[in-house]
Amino acid sequence: TDNMTISGETIDYGPCAFMEAFDPASVYSSIDLQGRYAFGRQSRIGEWNLARLAEALLPTIDADTDRAVELAQNALSRYADAFNAAWSEGMRVKLGIPADVDEAVTTALSTDLVSLLEIGRVDYTGFFRRLADAARGEAGAAHELFADPEPFNLWAQRWLALGPDAAAMDARNPVYIPRNHVVEEALDAATAGDLEPFARLLAVVRSPFVEREGCERFARPAPDSFGPYRTFCGT
């Protein structure tokens, strides 16, 4: 249900994957008026999806309906811990934190960073790439993303004390993603019969971790003139 396969994989991130001003409340669908599928609610929607799957499977779990519900609920109760562990591990890798650092430390650092990114409405993809430079002692680029950089500087001191691996960060944090405004440009051109913009975009995002000269525009957020981005059910 709702863009999630039976194996648990998300099959349609949509524009939420490419937020340029980080905000967990971001909603892109024109029909999601209550923010049910906001970026920050994706984990809860995943759990809801699995509950619907469990309901469908109840007759196959146990002939006794009450027993089937109990078993299903026991299975679903593991979701939150599993999700949080996966999220923490994903953030550990993005931040280049060594594997031997305590998970609680990683989780606290990651949670604090998410708050900073939300307050600063920072470009998510660009931030992590610039953060790798900070691990090399060149913090200026990441520093400039914040209107008030002092809270970030304090956070960065805690992070740098853990000895982050800049090369590992570069291997996991892309330079280029199919940003919405560039995708729209490619679609408009293709509709008019020109496939070159699409081919160029495809070539760039096929090697997203390797920075290349002449591809700077693919690493930049959309201009202000692009405006709020909205999609429609079925896109």
Rank of each mutant, 00 (worst) to 15 (best):
L109I: 12
L116N: 09
Y176V: 07
A134E: 10
F152Y: 15
E150K: 14
G137H: 07
V175L: 06
H143P: 01
A171P: 00
V182P: 00
V175R: 09
T106D: 02
I119D: 15
G120Y: 00
R158H: 14
F127P: 05
L113A: 07
A132E: 11
D133Q: 13
L145A: 13
L145M: 15
A135R: 04
F127Y: 12
A171F: 11
I177D: 03
R179N: 07
G140L: 05
V175S: 03
N180W: 02
E185L: 05
A161K: 01
R179V: 07
T106W: 01
R121D: 08
N153I: 00
W155Q: 08
P164L: 10
E184Y: 05
A139Q: 09
I119L: 04
L109Y: 04
R136D: 13
N180V: 01
D165A: 08
N153G: 15
E138Y: 08
E118H: 14
G163I: 01
L116W: 03
T107A: 13
L117W: 13
E150N: 11
A139S: 14
R121F: 01
S110N: 12
D123K: 02
A141M: 04
R158W: 13
A134Y: 02
E184L: 04
A141N: 03
A166P: 07
P178G: 13
Q157W: 01
I177Y: 00
R129D: 11
W159I: 01
L109M: 10
V182Y: 05
D148F: 05
A156Q: 12
W155Y: 03
G140V: 06
G126T: 09
G137P: 02
S115F: 11
P149H: 03
N173Q: 09
Y176K: 10
V122Y: 09
V122D: 08
A135F: 07
R121H: 08
E118A: 14
L154E: 12
W159G: 00
R158D: 05
H181F: 01
T107N: 04
L162C: 12
L113S: 11
E150L: 12
P178D: 15
T107P: 02
A168F: 06
G137T: 09
A132H: 00
V122W: 12
P174K: 00
E144G: 05
A161I: 04
A139H: 11
R121I: 10
T107S: 14
T125F: 02
R172D: 15
L117Q: 06
A147S: 06
F146R: 08
R136F: 02
A166Y: 15
L160D: 00
A161Q: 01
N153M: 04
A132M: 00
